[in-house]
Amino acid sequence: MADRRLEALQGAGSGRRPRMGDGRLPVDKTSGPPGPARAREMRLEQPSDDDLVAAVATGDEAACRALMDRHLTRMLALARRMLGNQADAEEVAQEVFIRVWTHADRWEPGKAQFGTWLYRVATNLCLDRLRKKRPTDDIDDMPNLASGDPGPDRQFEQRELAARVDAALQELPERQRAAIVLSHYQGLGNIEAADILGVTVEAVESLLSRARRQLRVSLATEKDELLRSKEISAS
């Protein structure tokens, strides 16, 4: 039943002219870059986010799964980098999609970009959570940035580097962290990031500059380690 409804949706959406940035995803990155005509054809086969949200409002399971396939991983990654642990990140990602389910019948297509709305909800949920958590932070719970010994195993070394990058991110002030997560990790443009954070594009640039400056200081040792490790693996 649900599959039939999604199929009907895909058929109905196929006649529409795609809008820029309406959440359509490239279908298959593994089989090499498709030509422009094929890429356009593949986009046309995909229902837009707005189409999927309308189907979600009717209880269409396939549309719910399609919307999650498209956005859940990104929302989870955003929350993971904002909050520094997977359990909290899953809670935030779950809350984001529960809000989608709850508001699906009131979603107005074309009024806002669904993807931008999702990012805004996820970012605000993370910032709220960080503000509530702040007074009870225990210094012992913070990851140790200066845990020097990389160990003999290269895989262990990579994990250690990853943990230290994560810890450096968690040390950033919340809004700087949000800016770098949206810009660097989610790949959003400065205008969209400013819209999500509710600030000007100049303010976004300032947040990003300060964030990267602090990260460079925090990760100066790690940058050298990474360079050494790349030289070793290249030789």
Partner: peptide, 21 residues
């Protein structure tokens, strides 16, 4: 420096999260 930042860990959504949703 970007390559170093890209090492920050990220995990795929768990099956339990998907099924709960």
């Amino acid at each position: 420096f970007d390559a170093l930042l890209d090492m920050a860990p990220v995990e795929a959504p768990s099956a339990a999260l998907t099924e709960r949703l």
